[in-house]
């Protein structure tokens, strides 16, 4: 067992966990932040994506102890109070979700994607968005409206 201390959605938290505990388990079970999901066991579906120190990572492929000392943002911490993040708003506006299961990971990936492309000044066109979504699987939407949502959010965040 280890005590892990980290910052989650701006709040310092600690918890007693076994060393083998995955970050996603710590978030879901210790912190009751069940918005982060597990959809596969081979690090491919992306339902578990959160941000660690501002970068998208797969919380099913990271131990909680590895994340100790870092700052984690989950889907629950993305909105500013009742003000949705532009990516959240765009997913609703463009019907970028159906069953909602992959959605938290999709949104966290999209935020990271837009932020990175803005930071390095590269263009985020449809082809790039589709390539950037390689690590996120959606079974409902056919990605069409997810792409529209990310395009719109990217424009809104200009």
């Amino acid at each position: 067992m280890a005590t892990v201390t980290l910052t989650v959605n701006g709040k310092k938290v600690s918890g007693e966990v076994e060393d083998r505990t995955l970050l996603v388990q710590f978030l879901r079970e210790n912190l009751n932040l069940t918005g982060t999901h597990v959809g596969c066991d081979t690090s491919q579906c992306g339902a578990c994506v959160v941000h660690m120190d501002g970068k998208a990572i797969k919380s099913c492929t990271t131990l909680a102890v590895q994340a100790a000392g870092s700052a984690i943002t989950t889907i629950e911490g993305l909105a500013d109070g009742t003000q949705l993040h532009p990516v959240q708003a765009a997913f609703r506006e463009h019907h970028g979700l159906q069953c909602g299961f992959c959605t938290p990971g999709m949104i966290m990936t999209a935020v990271d994607m837009i932020n990175r492309h803005k930071a390095n000044g590269s263009k985020l066109d449809e082809k790039t968005i589709r390539a950037e979504l390689e690590g996120n699987i959606c079974r409902c939407t056919g990605y069409h409206n997810i792409v529209r949502a990310i395009e719109a959010a990217n424009a809104a965040m200009a």
Binding site: L33, T34, G35, T74, E76, A79, E93, G100
Partner: peptide, 21 residues
């Protein structure tokens, strides 16, 4: 009409079976 159910899904507040304890 934009979906009424989306608010909970986009904020991580959906309640799926594995979320219950």
């Amino acid at each position: 009409v934009k979906r009424k159910e989306d608010q909970r899904f986009i904020t991580g507040k959906g309640r799926y079976t594995d979320d219950f304890r």
